[in-house]
């Protein structure tokens, strides 16, 4: 863990020089792209929700389950055909934040480690990107639920 806090004057000087040449992330452009590509994903999702409401026996409450499953299925196909990583490069957070991004993280890892076999390859590496999302998602949900329970018990809410 060396050198991350104390920089020598040389390092300081060089980093300033290097900064000058560094291509900056086009933050505004990325935001706009993320917004509309992410929005497009959501439009597809909403359309699917209505599809399930109209043609199957799902209510607004229950239609979200098959919708999520279908979206992940589409993400799986796009990942397998090598399209999703291109969308990801273009859209950034727009394709990473919706549930399809989660699906992509799981599926891409599964495809990647297929060559190492099903148990030690796919099985153990499938969640290497998404695993932390699961862990901290469940953990934070637990914390929030705990806080709410305490507040309700105390009569605040």
């Amino acid at each position: 863990m060396s050198g991350q806090n104390k920089k020598t004057p040389d390092q300081e000087k060089y980093q300033q020089l290097e900064q000058k040449h560094e291509t900056k992330r086009p933050v505004l452009k990325n935001c706009i792209r993320a917004f509309w590509v992410g929005g497009l994903f959501c439009v597809v999702g909403q359309a699917l929700t209505y599809f399930y409401i109209y043609f199957f026996n799902f209510t607004e409450q229950t239609a979200s389950n098959p919708t999520v499953a279908t979206m992940i299925f589409i993400a799986m196909l796009l990942t397998g055909f090598g399209v999703y990583d291109r969308i990801g490069q273009f859209a950034g957070a727009g394709s990473a934040v919706p549930v399809t991004g989660f699906g992509n993280a799981v599926i891409s890892a599964a495809i990647e480690h297929r060559t190492e076999g099903f148990v030690l390859g796919v099985g153990s590496n499938m969640f290497k990107l998404a695993g932390s999302v699961l862990l901290f998602g469940v953990f934070s949900a637990f914390i929030i639920a705990l806080i709410k329970t305490i507040l309700v018990y105390m009569g605040v809410i």
């Binding site: 409401i53 109209y54 209510t59 607004e60 409450q61 239609a63």
Partner: peptide, 8 residues
């Protein structure tokens, strides 16, 4: 119910 399916 405010659910659209119920309305439908």
């Amino acid at each position: 119910s405010s659910d659209f399916k119920i309305f439908l």
